[in-house]
Nucleic acid binder design. Sequence first.
DNA 1: AAGAGGATGAACT
DNA 2: GTTCATCCTCTTG
Length: 207
Amino acid sequence: MTNDESFIPPLPPEFYLRTDVVEVARALLGKVLVTRFDGRRTAGRITEVEAYRAPDDRASHAWGNRRTARTETMFCEGGRAYIYLCYGIHHLFNVVTAPEGLAHAVLVRAIEPLEGIDLMLERRNLHTPAPKLCTGPGALTQALGLRTAQNGISLLDTGSPVWIEDRGFAVSETEIAAGPRIGVDYAGECAAWEWRFWLKHSKFVKR
DNA sequence: AAGAGGATGAACT
DNA sequence: GTTCATCCTCTTG
């Protein structure tokens, strides 16, 4: 058994059940997002995230506690994936947080590839590893094989094809940069909230 | 029943 | 900097 295959447990429910989604978003930086489909693993360190907090956050799909078929996943107990189709093309992956009924979520915007890079390249139709392989919320889902078909899937269950691990990569507060979220100009004053967080010195973050 | 627009990315000029 | 691919969800009538 190689080091990559050694068992690391998924982050526990308590990690996701916290009621401060901004705190969870920051804590997700440096954690490792893993998928395993058909026995093939891909993984990457999370380098960029955004927090979304219904009901008061106008940028959230669940703003004002709007419950629709699509937003229902975000009202679930923390520890699931909220995956939706954006612009008809891109599958965007979010981590659902907070207890049931509170529609909080963290959008994962970029990861640093760690495992299964050949498979990532294949899924992305690329031939040479480059930062763009997993940089951007639509790019990383394609590389990891995540699709809307997995909306609502558990990040906690044994045997789930998607989970997040702590591999002991320490992120100090001074390593985290913050700024306004991308593409939420429609959200009024909420658009100015600095709820996008990224690893300051990472090459695997856009712009 | 129909239409608008979106938590983007890639390929252009 | 601009364009456009592409389709689901939500709103309106």
